[in-house]
């Protein structure tokens, strides 16, 4: 076989009008875009995506009834409620407190129920891994609005046991969170040799609790922290379940407040988005600190 000339279309004649691949600059091969194309796409899409967020911010600065007059008055009003308006932000603060409590309990469910189960599967029953993965990913296929139809009767029983308390939502929200928590932990487990490390610790005389606490968990810090942060983000953004089980959480309170004071609701919504962005940014930087797991975010379903 003789060498194929670089410029001819020797592979197959095509209808594509193909200009010579060498035009001025060095020819690029492969899939990478040119610098200009990259900049144009990223800036255009980025700007479009910033518009609604910018609009939110602009909205919070407006003075109602006076177009073009901007001030931070609505921000101040959060802390110094104007009694004349008769608006109380207490439901919102209560919703935030409830959501934080639910966050705490959901994180506990992840750390005390999901994590030990995953370790048990890795160490003792690797054959069950497929099943566990299936179960943990399942909540993506079952929309929360469908689950809610079933949650309503289940929660009548739950309320009989624990009372109709906001914190009981943590059980339901924990299910929604499963896929998000499972992924980073699973990726982390796959990224280091869990079994060998444990065997080493055991043969060096460590008891099971010591091996888990001093050898395994320190290696899983990254996955666990990602899972916890994602859990916090998802719980703070959860609306459907709280709405149908008639509990006051951050999101339901936002919607409620927006009917009386849409400015303050928007301030809190924007703040929550920024807050979630910051925690995920921290996970991202945290993950970048050491190589090994680049795909730390749950990609939704990956069978």
């Amino acid at each position: 076989m003789s060498a194929v000339p670089l410029t001819s279309t020797a592979v197959e004649p095509t209808t594509v009008p193909s200009p010579s691949p060498r035009r001025g600059r060095t020819p690029r091969v492969g899939a990478e875009p040119s610098k200009a194309a990259r900049l144009i796409i990223l800036i255009a899409v980025g700007l479009v995506f910033l518009v609604p967020l910018g609009a939110m911010f602009e909205f919070t600065l407006r003075t109602s009834g006076k177009p073009g007059v901007y001030s931070f008055a609505h921000y101040a009003s959060i802390f110094h409620t104007d009694p004349a308006l008769g608006i109380s932000y207490e439901p919102l603060f209560e919703g935030i407190r409830n959501s934080l409590l639910i966050c705490l309990l959901t994180v506990a469910i992840i750390l005390l129920i999901l994590l030990p189960t995953m370790l048990l599967v890795e160490l003792r029953y690797p054959r069950v891994r497929r099943v566990l993965e299936f179960v943990c990913i399942l909540p993506i296929t079952v929309p929360s609005i469908v689950l809610v139809v079933g949650f309503v009767p289940v929660y009548q029983r739950v309320a009989a046991v624990f009372g109709s308390q906001p914190w009981t939502l943590a059980f339901a929200v924990g299910i929604i969170v499963l896929p998000y928590a499972y992924r980073p932990i699973a990726t982390n487990i796959a990224a280091f040799d869990l079994v060998t490390l444990t065997e080493a610790a055991r043969s060096l005389g460590a008891s099971w609790p010591v091996a888990i606490y001093r050898v395994i968990l320190p290696n899983m810090r990254r996955g666990v922290i990602s899972a916890v942060f994602l859990t916090v983000a998802v719980v703070l953004g959860e609306y459907t379940i709280a709405a149908f089980l008639s509990q006051n959480t951050f999101q339901t309170a936002l919607l409620l407040i927006s009917q009386t004071d849409s400015y303050v609701a928007t301030i809190f919504a924007l703040a929550a988005l920024v807050f979630a962005f910051v925690i995920l940014l921290i996970i991202g930087r945290f993950g970048a600190a050491s190589p090994g797991s680049r795909r730390r975010r749950p990609r939704r379903v990956q069978p």
Binding site: G54, M56, E58, F59, A233, G237, L254, A276, L280, R297
Partner: peptide
């Protein structure tokens, strides 16, 4: 990545507010 995660999985009610502020009656 972080911004995508927030907007894809966290939005819900808050994105509704964002769009009211953008293309609602008084939207920018």
């Amino acid at each position: 990545d972080s911004a995508s995660s927030v907007l894809a999985q966290f939005g819900g009610v808050m994105l509704a507010f964002a769009f009211i502020a953008t293309v609602g009656f008084q939207g920018i």
